[in-house]
Amino acid sequence: NKFNKEMRNAYWEILHLPNLNEEQKNAFIQSLYDDPSQSANLLAEAKKLNDAQA
């Protein structure tokens, strides 16, 4: 299933973003579980936030 793979990839990438705190990571990961079809968008948002907090 495409979403499972996308979701897993997004999950791991978000988990390893160095500039997000636990609360931010948890919020993105919760959103992933709530709507796996948004994995790519959530990952993009997480990366933007990560870069902004660098």
Rank of each mutant, 00 (worst) to 15 (best):
D35P: 01
N50S: 08
H16Q: 06
Q38R: 11
A46R: 00
A52E: 06
L17K: 02
A44I: 11
N21Q: 11
D51L: 13
F28T: 03
P36Q: 06
E13F: 15
L32N: 01
L17D: 00
K2W: 15
L43I: 04
F28L: 08
L15M: 07
L20D: 00
Q30W: 15
N1R: 03
S39H: 13
D35L: 14
K2V: 08
P18F: 14
N21D: 10
N41W: 15
L43T: 06
A27I: 11
K5D: 09
M7K: 01
L43S: 10
S39V: 06
I29K: 13
A10H: 02
L17P: 00
S37V: 08
A27M: 13
D51G: 11
F28S: 04
N41E: 05
Q30K: 13
D34M: 14
P18E: 06
A40V: 10
N19M: 12
A10V: 04
A54Q: 12
Q24L: 07
K47A: 03
W12P: 00
K5R: 03
P18V: 10
Y33I: 06
D51W: 14
P36L: 03
K25V: 09
W12K: 05
D51E: 13
P18M: 11
K48P: 01
K2I: 08
K47T: 02
S31E: 08
L20V: 09
N26A: 15
L43G: 02
R8M: 09
A46D: 00
N1L: 03
L15G: 02
A52W: 13
D34Q: 14
L17T: 02
N26L: 08
R8Y: 15
L32Q: 02
D35W: 10
W12R: 11
R8H: 04
E6H: 05
N9H: 15
Q24A: 07
F28N: 01
K2D: 15
K25L: 10
H16M: 07
P36R: 04
N26R: 15
Q24R: 07
A44M: 14
A54R: 02
W12I: 03
L20N: 00
Q53N: 11
N4S: 04
K47M: 05
F28E: 00
Q30H: 14
A46G: 04
A40H: 10
K48E: 07
S31K: 13
Q30N: 06
K2Y: 05
Y11M: 13
S31H: 08
Q30I: 08
L42D: 02
S37T: 08
A46S: 07
L49D: 07
E45T: 13
A27N: 08
E45W: 15
L42P: 02
E13D: 06
N19G: 06
E23N: 12
N9V: 14
F3P: 15
N21G: 11
S37F: 09
L49K: 09
K5H: 02
L32H: 00
N19K: 09
E22G: 12
N9S: 07
H16R: 14
A10G: 01
Q53W: 11
L15I: 12
Q30Y: 15
A10D: 01
N19T: 03
E23A: 10
N50T: 02
A54I: 06
L43H: 03
L49A: 08
S37Y: 07
A52V: 07
L49I: 05
K2H: 11
Q38W: 08
A40T: 09
D51S: 13
H16A: 09
S39P: 14
H16D: 02
Q53M: 10
N50K: 03
Q53T: 09
A44T: 10
L17N: 01
D35K: 14
D51T: 15
D51Q: 12
S31Y: 11
N41Y: 14
N41K: 13
E22I: 07
E13Q: 15
N41G: 10
D51H: 09
S37H: 06
A52T: 10
N9T: 15
E23M: 10
L20K: 00
N26V: 12
N19L: 05
N19F: 12
W12L: 01
Y11R: 12
E6K: 04
Y11F: 10
A10N: 02
A44W: 12
L42V: 09
L20I: 11
L15N: 05
L15R: 14
L42A: 05
A40L: 12
Q24I: 03
K47I: 06
A44G: 09
L43A: 09
E22P: 06
N4A: 02
A52M: 11
D51Y: 13
N19Y: 11
A27R: 10
L15P: 00
K25W: 03
N50P: 01
Q24S: 09
Q53V: 09
S37I: 08
F3T: 13
Q53A: 06
Q38F: 05
D51R: 13
N21R: 06
S31V: 05
A27D: 07
K47N: 05
D34W: 09
K48A: 06
D35T: 09
K2E: 15
S39Q: 02
Q24W: 08
E45G: 12
E6L: 12
D35M: 10
D34A: 13
L20G: 00
H16T: 07
E22D: 06
L42T: 01
F3R: 08
N19V: 06
E13I: 15
P18I: 09
A54P: 08
A40G: 07
L43P: 01
L20W: 00
S37Q: 06
F28W: 08
E45P: 01
A46N: 00
H16K: 13
A44D: 06
F3V: 14
I14Q: 00
N41M: 13
N21V: 13
I14V: 04
N41T: 09
Q38V: 08
N50F: 02
D51P: 04
N1F: 01
M7E: 12
M7L: 05
K25E: 02
L32D: 00
A46E: 00
K47L: 06
W12E: 03
P36S: 04
M7V: 09
I14K: 00
N19W: 12
L15F: 13
Q30R: 15
S31G: 06
N21E: 08
D34Y: 06
P36M: 04
L32E: 00
I29W: 12
K48Q: 10
P18R: 15
N26T: 08
L20H: 00
A10S: 03
F28M: 05
N21K: 07
F28R: 02
A46F: 02
A46I: 02
Q30D: 04
E45N: 10
N1Q: 04
F3M: 11
N1I: 06
N50D: 07
I14F: 05
D35H: 13
D34F: 12
N21P: 05
A46P: 00
P18G: 09
Y33H: 03
R8Q: 09
S31D: 06
I14W: 00
A46Y: 04
E13H: 15
L20Y: 00
P36A: 07
Q24M: 11
N1M: 02
A52G: 14
E6A: 09
H16V: 03
D51I: 12
Q53I: 11
A27Y: 13
A27T: 07
N21L: 07
R8A: 12
E45I: 14
L42E: 03
E22T: 12
L15V: 10
E6G: 01
N26P: 02
E45D: 07
S37L: 03
K48N: 09
F28V: 04
A46Q: 00
N41H: 11
A44F: 15
